[in-house]
Design a protein around this nucleic acid. Structure first.
Lengths: 347, 347
DNA sequence: ATGAAAGCGCTAACAC
DNA sequence: GTGTTAGCGCTTTCAT
């Protein structure tokens, strides 16, 4: 019996092993494995066969160190269970799949110090670019991003100062436009339901834009309700019940995201409340999920896939050297989806 | 004007720069930055200040090459937009956060050849371990996993042959137990709704267990409906309508996941169908989401967070050298959640 | 078309 | 407690 089963070698294979096995120099083996430079068909095949026979997997660590090229793109987002960020990832992947770049995801759980750690960790792998959610970062994080010397794209939000490039929508504007659409339908006693603000800058900006636009028409948010943690759908129900108990005369509820909006909508329908005849509702994000509800909640599409695509394109262009420009700014237009809960029945 | 703004240096900083700035040898700088070995408080501070002043971020590529230690754990999953896998990630993160290991996620979109690519890419970074969803992989993937010489944990499913360690539930058993629970309530004309099988081995196994257990009681699935792609909630509605149109006498619908089950439930409630009096329903996964629906869909909890935790623990133990055992097998028990759609009203 | 030598930035191992 | 030396496994560069 041997101590070293073929199935789990103690020492990982190196180029050297493939070189020995094939009788070709390390250098030429390297060229074959990377499709670089001219190699005769004969040696090429010898090498490929040897590599496959041995089950050789190149060591990217050594390769990256030698070439100072790393085909990774750091993607730093607050959460994965949000429905929003997986879609951003879809957009990023769509574009990066056409290049040799690979996304690597880091999760911050909406905590600035966690973001700092994750960023530090990722930058220490010297990625080809960074795509990071939001414009609000700790001073240390911004310093790291600036000092990294690699393309940085801040995504989701354009309301603020960017380190380098930025792709997103204006959440203030999204809030304003929703306010206008609501007022236009004649709603007047408006309640707001959302996340606790400090955790979510984009929700805060939407709220600010919303109240600002209402103020211009002489209206204001007459009741508010906030939550944190827990199942958003359940929270939406609970908050809706709470706010309508406090003020039964509200005629519109604006939710800071679709999930709590969906919860509120389900609750109202169960209670036999006429939506939108008696009360109108709207959420934010435009998640696909809404299509399956009894009524389609009004919402505003946050252009998530498109944001991911555009951000990845900026990184890819810059990493390939084709583009040297920095500080690109792409503002996408949030699209109002009227659905079934915003347009009032004509009396 | 200078060509080289301090904000974006051409050349990334090295240990050497910190050494020069602090007047301490590279080696000692390295020790300080890694908290290794004894360093006097004085030099320690000198180094830390110099590093911070310069904004130095260590190069993990070089570090990993020199030490042949990489604190990354490759996590390979089919999808992020599934609600299931983010929860597995939560469990993994909970455990890894207490170590110096970091998860790196790769997405396969349920495609075996994509899985092969992602795996190859990740292994080439020489991670400390691999956590990979499912037991079904291409021969090449299995060969790579075996040859890697690092801990491999296959998760979610225990029905099959594992490369190394495995943590999950038996989906066949989950299907069997749901069948028994349904039969026990006196349901007899049972329909099944699910994903197209070849894409989803775990759903297939649940279906097999389900039909097998039904057969033992002399029953069978009398109608089936399959889907692929699209919004699961919408698909659930459409499939439910289709299957009940084909066979209006069905008295139970078993869905292969909670999302399509939720769609079906909403559709039935809208149509005024008495659930579970007229027709019973059950899904699979136990997603939190169900709590916010008008009725709680019966389901079976897949123990996702616990699976993530246990898998990460195996990798962490093995990576630390504390445990050398291989081939661990942890089978968790899926828990039936009766909800409101399985227990028949007493007549 | 192929090979030889040097070195990427760091850490292990060993001095002192 | 601190410094020195020799690589880690590749790729770059320059020969041939």
């Amino acid at each position: 019996m041997t101590d070293e089963p073929a199935s789990a070698p103690r020492r990982p294979l190196t180029l050297r092993d493939v070189s020995d096995e094939s009788g070709v120099s390390e250098m030429t083996v390297s060229r074959v494995l990377r499709n670089r430079g001219d190699v005769s068909e004969a040696t090429r095949n010898k090498v490929l066969e040897a590599a496959k026979r041995l089950g050789y997997v190149p060591n990217k660590i050594a390769g990256a160190l030698a070439s100072s090229r790393v085909n990774l793109v750091a993607v730093i987002i607050p959460s994965m269970s949000n429905m929003v960020f997986p879609e951003v990832m879809t957009g990023i992947t769509q574009v990066l799949d056409r290049t040799d770049l690979q996304p690597v995801v880091g999760i911050t759980n909406y905590q600035p110090d966690r973001e700092e750690d994750v960023l530090y960790e990722m930058l220490s792998w010297r990625p080809s670019g960074v795509i990071i959610a939001g414009l609000e970062h700790s001073d240390a994080s911004r310093a790291m991003l600036r000092a990294s010397g690699i393309p940085v794209v801040e995504i989701m939000d354009v309301d603020g100062e960017a380190v380098d490039a930025v792709v997103g929508i204006s959440h203030r504007r999204a809030g304003r436009e929703m306010a206008k659409a609501i007022v236009k339908q004649g709603f007047e006693r408006i309640g707001f339901l959302g996340t606790k603000m400090p955790m979510d800058h984009r929700a805060r900006k939407r709220f600010e834009g919303f109240t600002e636009a209402l103020a211009k028409t002489g209206l204001e948010v007459v009741e508010q309700e906030f939550y944190s943690g827990g199942s958003a759908l359940v929270k939406g129900r609970e908050m809706t019940e709470a706010i309508l108990t406090r003020d039964p005369d509200l005629d519109f509820l604006y939710y800071s995201n679709d999930m709590i909006g969906a919860g509120g909508l389900l609750w109202c329908l169960e209670k036999g409340i006429d939506v939108p005849g008696r009360i109108g509702m709207a959420g934010f994000n435009g998640v696909e999920f809404l299509k399956g509800l009894p009524k389609r909640l009004a919402t505003m599409d946050a252009e998530r896939i498109e944001i991911g695509r555009a951000a990845a394109q900026i990184v890819a262009d810059r990493a390939s050297g084709a583009v040297t420009e920095t500080g690109q700014r792409i503002e996408l237009e949030p699209r109002l989806q009227v659905g079934d809960t915003l347009r009032r029945y004509k009396p």
